[in-house]
Design a protein around this nucleic acid. Structure first.
Lengths: 249, 249
DNA sequence: GCATCCATCATTGTATACAATAGGCTCGAT
DNA sequence: ATCGAGCCTATTGTATACAATGATGGATGC
């Protein structure tokens, strides 16, 4: 709890590589905290229910609470973080009902994405998708947290290639929230099956077969949804610090 | 430019009536600024391109820049406000391409809403819708800025009645952004036609006719979309202060 | 032993100070 | 008059101080 910690941490400049979304809260600092936390959540390093104390996060990322606060607000807007007045932030714990809503919205959005893609997809796009699936396969082998993230990013990539930025943003959001839902309700699944299903979607798109692609997607999401089971972690006081260090880069 | 203005303004407590979304940035203060600005934007009192200076807003709402900043960040996340680093916030000016994306997403989402509603709508829900349409008709008569807002709120109400919170949030967002788009690209339309079309949608829902409802909605949105024309307001330096006062309550 | 109350502490909410940046403006030179 | 260099001011970015709120734990009474 020593004060004046940052002076030491502050690198002279942090030129964050690539602003993921067009929307930015402000400078690159809160963005960096935001994306760090986001990644930690999506890779399930931070688990639903974990307390996100502003001071702790600020300490680990080398910024003041002001910045952390902005990042948390953004994560809250996305539904990844619960923010209770005067009690602070925790990783969101979607109820089963919310989970259902998210999946339904996701289905609806991704159908539209595929409909667009089946019409306008280019060979270059297909190449990118193939490459991504390959990446998934490789990461999936040694089942790192990266595999979880990559599985989601496949869908985000699809949405981005659709060319509709609004759709892309929403898909990004629902996919992220699905990570949370799986963390809460699913057994530690091997995502091998996912990869296979992703490949099928790409194949259908290559054939410009909107119908088959949609079917494949429906089946895929159905499979993911049905992994919703029991489970509930409740370590009252997990120490986040060491985890945050891994994501503060 | 006198400092220490707020002491005078600060009411002892501001028990904001109803938190629109479950997501809250923090306390009720930023919420109040947020919703005030939002309403001003949606009612087209604030126009695309208008500069939103933190100090000015803070002064009018009787809060510090900290609070204003949180509100602006949230509006930015919703796509209603552009936030450029070191240059501040302006009301968003969606490009035609963005406008198209928004409308496409909106169509997709609202179809899903209608599909759900056609199955599960109750008589009580229908009554609420009827009541709302009546309200629209009344407000539309003397064409206040409220009419614009109410037209949008019809769609938001539909989404909320659908029972899917995620869907509702997204519909809320795209509908709001449509206000901006209309402000930019449409002639000052009388929304009488809208009301009529809204009534048709309600009628279709009463008959539990998903198909007819969807058709009506498609037609309705089509009509709205096609009002996209020319126009561009560019008062370089509009004075926002008097407008803000009307929304600071 | 168990519940209750109060003191203490940890944490959040908010205003504000200070630094950095951007844009405008004056002034002089061409 | 037009252009550019350099100050000047308005505004944003960020850390921090202080207040308020909620949790925690220990002493007290039953």
């Amino acid at each position: 709890m020593d004060t004046k910690w940052w002076r030491a941490h502050l690198a002279p400049s942090v030129p964050s590589s690539m602003p993921n979304h067009p929307s930015k809260t402000s400078g690159s600092r809160s963005e960096s905290v935001y994306s760090g936390l986001r990644r930690a959540i999506i890779e399930q390093a931070l688990m639903p229910g974990d307390k996100l104390t502003e001071d702790v996060i600020g300490e680990r990322f080398g910024v003041s609470r002001t910045i952390v606060r902005a990042a948390l607000a953004k994560l809250n807007a996305e539904g990844l973080v619960d923010l209770q007045p005067n009690k602070g932030a925790t990783i969101a714990q979607p109820s089963l009902s919310e989970a259902h809503d998210v999946f339904e919205a996701r289905m609806c959005l991704e159908r539209q994405v595929l409909a667009r893609l089946a019409e306008r997809i280019t060979d270059r796009d297909l190449a990118m998708l193939e490459q991504h699936v390959a990446l998934e396969a490789k990461a999936g082998a040694h089942d790192g947290p990266a595999a979880i993230r990559l599985a989601g990013e496949f869908h985000i990539l699809l949405a981005e290639l659709s060319g509709n930025g609004v759709l892309a943003r929403y898909v990004d959001e629902v996919v992220s929230r699905c990570s949370l839902i799986l963390a809460l309700y699913s057994r530690p699944h091997s995502s091998d099956c996912s990869i296979n299903e992703h490949q099928q979607i790409v194949d259908a798109l290559r054939a410009r077969d909107a119908d088959r692609a949609t079917k494949a997607m429906d089946h895929h999401l159905q499979a993911v949804t049905e992994r919703a089971l029991l489970s509930s972690n409740s370590d009252k006081h997990r120490d986040i610090r060491s985890i945050l260090d891994r994501y503060a880069g």
